[in-house]
């Protein structure tokens, strides 16, 4: 039984990282109607920024995490403002679906990867955070790094929930996500809200990157694997649904961990996609997703 609990704890810690990235993807999708394929690189960029703040500014881990979230969020705003905005405007409004945005997402992913490569090189960099000794709970040994990931992830999610549900800014973001034209007519600065939504989505990716950095190290190619899992998580939970992204992320993490523990670790990546297929067969819109409908 202890072994199962251990596996679930590991799954939850990895799942929390997937959930944060999936949350960012879902937030950007709900706000901008675009699937952001460069989000894995935002996660990577956030991890590098966190590492640089931690090492060069010699700040403790928590301030480094918070500062990395803010800086990456601002970079996200800049990216949206300078690049994606042009495409959305070219589409005749605030939203343009289609190949242009998908291709530019892939392009942005390559650009960010190469920028990171030029700055930090290809080799993995250690993120040496002294989390302290593992906590003993009965027969369980709970590493502090997992405790950090899960609790920091939960705090960030609570923060996001409060921002979206309890502030005027959040209300404006939700209004823009729901219907941009009506939001505009209501006096909301729609372009600013889109930038903000994109920035918050990127900040969530950065949080995930900084949280996993001490365990998996930080390297240029770290984004691809997590992006695929995060997409799976977002789809399992219901694409565009924020609670769904969290649930999907945690489910993917736990299923992956249990599969690796009880079946075979060699095919660890497959379990997430088996889960994805099963969920889509039973509920094509995802566990917490709503029936697809045309957005205004």
């Amino acid at each position: 039984m202890d072994y199962v609990i251990d596996l679930v704890i590991i799954g939850l810690s990895v799942g929390m990282v997937y959930a944060l990235v999936a949350l960012g993807i879902s937030l950007i999708f709900s706000g901008l109607d675009i699937v952001h394929f460069a989000h894995g690189e935002i996660y990577m960029l956030g991890a590098f920024i966190g590492l640089m703040i931690f090492q060069k500014l010699a700040l403790p881990y928590v301030p480094a995490l918070l500062l990395a979230i803010v800086v990456t969020g601002l970079i996200g705003v800049l990216i949206e403002r300078l690049f994606y905005r042009r495409l959305t405007r070219a589409g005749g409004g605030y939203t343009v679906a289609g190949m242009g945005m998908i291709i530019s997402g892939f392009g942005m992913s390559i650009v960010l990867q190469n920028i990171a490569f030029l700055i930090w090189g290809a080799k993995p960099l250690p993120f040496p955070v002294p989390f302290g000794m593992p906590v003993e709970v009965g027969n369980l040994t709970l590493p502090m790094s997992y405790v950090w990931i899960v609790s920091a992830g939960l705090l960030i999610m609570v923060g996001l929930h409060l921002l979206l549900r309890r502030t005027m800014l959040g209300l404006a973001m939700r209004a823009v996500a729901h219907n941009k034209d009506i939001a505009y007519l209501s006096g909301i600065n729609v372009p600013a809200m889109i930038s903000l939504t994109f920035g918050v989505g990127c900040a969530l990716g950065a949080a995930a990157g900084v949280l996993i950095g001490p365990i998996n190290y930080v390297q240029v190619q770290m984004g691809l694997g997590v992006l695929i899992k995060a997409f799976a998580a977002a789809v399992v939970g219901g694409f565009g649904s924020l609670p769904g992204a969290v649930l999907g992320g945690l489910l993917v993490g736990v299923v992956e961990s249990l599969g690796a523990g009880f079946i075979s670790g060699t095919y660890k990546d497959v379990y997430a996609f088996i889960l994805l297929v099963l969920v889509l067969m039973v509920k094509p819109s995802g566990i917490l997703g709503v029936e697809a409908r045309m957005k205004a």
Partner: peptide, 17 residues
Amino acid sequence: EAQMQESDLDFRAHLLK
């Protein structure tokens, strides 16, 4: 005995076993 993919980052499930 367990074999993992070269690209794997998380070995903790095996290590627990």
